[in-house]
Design a protein around this nucleic acid. Structure first.
Length: 482
DNA sequence: ATGTTC
């Protein structure tokens, strides 16, 4: 299938549509949220073919959607949103991704960048020492099978109960850091084994822990509600469910592929394997996905504990403790209620490389944030900048309450490695005042800024289109990578 | 993303 510019209609300044008539398999139109330049960029890989394929999912509602940071992924594009009707619509593990509940959190300090400028090198080394990182890397905590089941059921609460977390953090996580539909008995022994020693570890790829400061405040009122102010030092953590989530995805993609003929489902790409949500296989996957999501929240809570320890080691035991601003999931499926063509209906929202961006008034939000909307945390590429935005009513109308999740890759990992001299890049970043500590130069090369789209343009698009409001811009000063 | 390949 080839998609050319003439197949795409501009329906708003930043909204494009491939109509249903494009392919007989499509059940709904396919929509792209992008500026014209970003759209040209998006057309360089198979993202739009995948977007059109997703529009053929059984029970899909409204439109199949991609955000401006989209790039191709396993079956579904990364940066995609698909809502299917509850309870009989499709659930597809490819629409969630291999790293179940990959997500980002932001911790805030009471320090200004000028207070810590001379400590950055030792801080980055201490963070690197405290936070295990890298492929397959285990951590300090070794879980028994009994304990791992507790983590899978209780999510971030487990970390708090065991003294690896902070009780006040729980209110500041999407779903309070725990999905109640989780069922550990739906997670394979193999997955549990892989997860037994990986709590408190970031992994590799684009995962990181980063120290930033607030460089610019766009919206004083919202920034104040979120506890953010100019020049304030903050910490961004980006990671997910590690080997455990990956194994859950692998196990269920295989099972669901095998079950598809039973339900008479045909999809244009085998990687879109799906079953009805209310089928046995669909329910089992959803319970296992919830368990893996809980593992990821627990993981980010324990990494925060490691960051807090590093903070005390560098700044002394009396330093004001780091607070959790918010924690978002960007690879997950949720049952939510949305308005489609004027009707309120329950849908299964698949967000893969997309952040929930609920607007003001949403009951799950902590009271401090309820009137201004959900915090949306957008990490940029290494050494560029990141953003905090706020969800809006427009996102509820246009994108099932969703927004982008990052800058979005524009070069494959292999292409990036060919073009980037990692030791040189590390030196260049140091000259710019950014200390990078990484386990491998390979990781640095793959994550070089050149491998990513310009996060400023991506954020401009979501902000100008109205699906999220810019709150603050963050500038990195120290990065720990796998 | 991932003990980098069902």
């Amino acid at each position: 299938m080839i998609i050319s510019k003439s197949d795409i209609t501009r329906i708003e300044a930043y909204l494009w549509e491939i109509p249903k008539s494009f392919s007989p398999k499509m059940r709904v139109p396919a929509r792209i949220l992008a500026s014209e330049t970003l759209l040209d960029n998006i057309m360089e890989d198979r993202s739009l073919v995948q977007l059109v394929n997703v529009a053929s999912l059984p029970g899909i509602q409204g439109a199949s959607l991609v955000m401006p940071d989209v790039h191709e992924g396993y079956g579904f594009p990364i940066g995609g949103v698909a809502a299917t009707v509850y309870p009989e619509g499709a659930i597809s593990p490819g629409g969630i991704g291999y790293d179940i509940n990959c997500g980002v959190r932001l911790l805030t300090s009471q320090q200004k960048i000028t207070d810590i400028r001379d400590r950055l090198e030792s801080l980055s080394k201490e963070l690197y020492a405290q936070i295990p990182s890298g492929m397959g890397k285990g951590g300090q905590i070794k879980l028994s099978l009994q304990e791992i089941d507790e983590v899978l059921h209780n999510g971030a609460e487990w970390a708090v109960q065991k003294g690896y977390g902070v009780n006040d953090d729980l209110a500041f996580m999407e779903s309070n850091g725990r999905l109640h539909n989780a069922d550990a008995s739906m997670v394979s022994e193999m997955a549990k084994k892989r997860g037994a020693d990986q709590l408190g570890t970031i992994g590799s790829g684009n995962h990181f822990v980063e120290v930033d400061y607030v460089e610019e405040v766009f919206d004083e009122t919202i920034a104040k509600s979120y506890g953010l102010s100019k020049n304030q030092v903050v910490v961004l953590i980006h990671t997910g469910s590690r080997g455990l989530g990956h194994q859950v995805a692998t196990d269920y993609i295989r099972q669901i592929m095998a079950a598809m003929p039973t339900y008479d489902i045909e999809v244009p790409d085998r990687e879109l394997a799906c079953v009805p949500f209310n089928s046995q296989e669909g329910q089992n996957y959803f319970k296992a996905m919830g368990a893996a999501a809980n593992y990821a929240w627990c993981n980010r809570e324990i990494i925060s504990w490691e960051v807090r320890r590093a903070w005390k080691n560098i700044f002394g035991p009396t330093i004001e403790p780091l607070k959790l601003m918010y924690d978002v999931a960007h690879n997950i499926a949720k049952i939510e209620e949305h308005s489609i063509e004027g009707k309120r209906i329950k849908v299964i929202v698949h967000r893969k490389g997309a952040t929930r961006a609920f607007g003001p008034g949403f009951g799950e939000l902590p009271e401090k944030y309820r009137n201004v909307g959900q915090p949306v945390i957008i990490p940029g590429s290494m050494g560029t900048c990141s953003y905090v935005l706020a969800g809006t009513d427009k996102s509820m109308q246009l994108t099932f309450g969703s927004c982008c999740h990052g800058a979005g890759r524009r070069l494959s990992r292999t292409a990036a490695k060919k073009q980037v001299n990692a030791p040189v890049l590390k030196e260049q970043l140091k000259e710019k005042g950014i200390f990078v500590e990484a386990g491998s130069f390979k990781g640095i090369a793959e994550e070089a800024p050149i491998a990513y789209k310009d996060v400023n343009r991506v954020v401009e698009t979501v902000s100008d289109s109205g699906i999220a409001k810019k709150v603050v811009k963050l500038r990195p000063v120290a990065v720990v990578k796998g």
